[in-house]
Design a protein around this nucleic acid. Structure first.
Lengths: 195, 195
DNA sequence: GCAAAAGTGTTTCGTATACACCCATGG
DNA sequence: CCATGGGTGTATACGAAACACTTTTGC
């Protein structure tokens, strides 16, 4: 009597970073077969650490697919900072000509960065407003007005300036995100739908 | 040599409807074990049809969990209209005291209805503006201003009035959503993030 | 002194919000 | 004629968008 199929569970990482002023995706990654039962977020963190050594990593589940043959693939979005590649055959690639899953991950990033503090994933703990703006410009792939950006970001009250400055030109104030390094929605989100 | 675990794949439905002017969730549902490899959206549709006979159904994947023991659960949000229950032990319940997964599904619905045409899932093909407004009020669980609602919805240019009216009082114009019965984002979404 | 990046305000425009009365029909 | 739900406009407030010049440093 057949009670169920034996499914193979895979985890697929869409790994994005900003390097050299460009958004990059990690190419050459296989889907990782999960060898043992494990919370998925934990598995994503573990597999990502096998792939890269990075200052910061952030992972978020994207979507799950089931294919013929009982192959189940859970896709994860991963954002990393200053990552070194641990495995052979991997390389950073431009974000042109993405797979459907990777394109979805990028879309998620582009949306989420506009109503959360997710930009922290691509930044060191302390950063200048120009660096933060550049992060947005690289992710969104378009220019942003400097004055409007500063007004908006500062009005959200999600940044703290600890008085330090970065030198090497005109000194720039250093900021950090208030609170822990995790996604928080902006105070104004979600916008009310009438009334 | 152990090459992988044998995973049990389950599909869990969060089924919502509007009945009698209230948002209701289908209680008594088990997690459905997937007996054969199958695209997940298709499985969700199939399992939902085992549970209810409805005028319209809409399904959307929510999230995937993996538990100890190799149990993998893919959660789906389902929205139905005028549903009859096919299975014993099921009942419509209020949306107080929801499980974590169900609460997430409801949150998804509340968000998505504010920037897409998803309200179609709870409405017949043709409906009055008052019925559409009521759908929003029930889902969002708050009152909405009638004049502002009409201005906003009509300005989005997603409704078509085909000249028919509903009688039984002062005649009310009947509208339908333009295009097919599938989720489309409003022209103004996503709001630009500066510039 | 000059190149390079940091920093700063105002005006305009569009959308969101608040708010109350008349109208058409069925019974 | 009256109860019920359908239908309509305006004034205010707020946030988004457009837009250019001065300042501070390193070299």
């Amino acid at each position: 009597m057949k009670l169920g199929v034996s499914n193979s569970l895979f985890l697929e990482l869409v790994v994005l970073t900003i390097a050299d002023g460009h958004l990059r995706i990690l190419g050459g990654l296989p889907a990782h077969k999960l060898q043992r039962p494990e919370p998925l977020d934990q598995a994503a963190q573990r597999l990502l650490k096998q792939e890269v050594a990075a200052d910061h990593i952030y992972v978020e589940q994207l979507y799950t697919f089931a294919f013929r043959g009982g192959r189940v693939v859970v896709a994860y979005l991963a954002l990393v900072l200053n990552a070194e590649l641990n495995q052979p055959g991997r390389a950073w690639r431009s974000t042109h000509a993405l797979s459907e899953v990777a394109a979805y991950g990028l879309k998620r990033l582009r949306n989420k960065i506009t109503y959360t503090n997710l930009a922290f994933a691509f930044l060191p703990d302390r950063f200048t407003l120009s660096e933060l703006q550049s992060t947005y410009e690289v992710v969104l792939d378009r220019a942003v007005d400097k004055r409007n950006f500063r007004k908006k970001i500062l009005s959200l009250d999600i940044l703290a300036a600890d008085g330090e400055v970065r030198r090497g030109g005109r000194p720039a104030r250093l900021y950090r995100f208030k609170g822990p390094r995790e996604v928080t929605f902006w105070p104004t989100y979600p916008n009310n739908f009438m009334n």
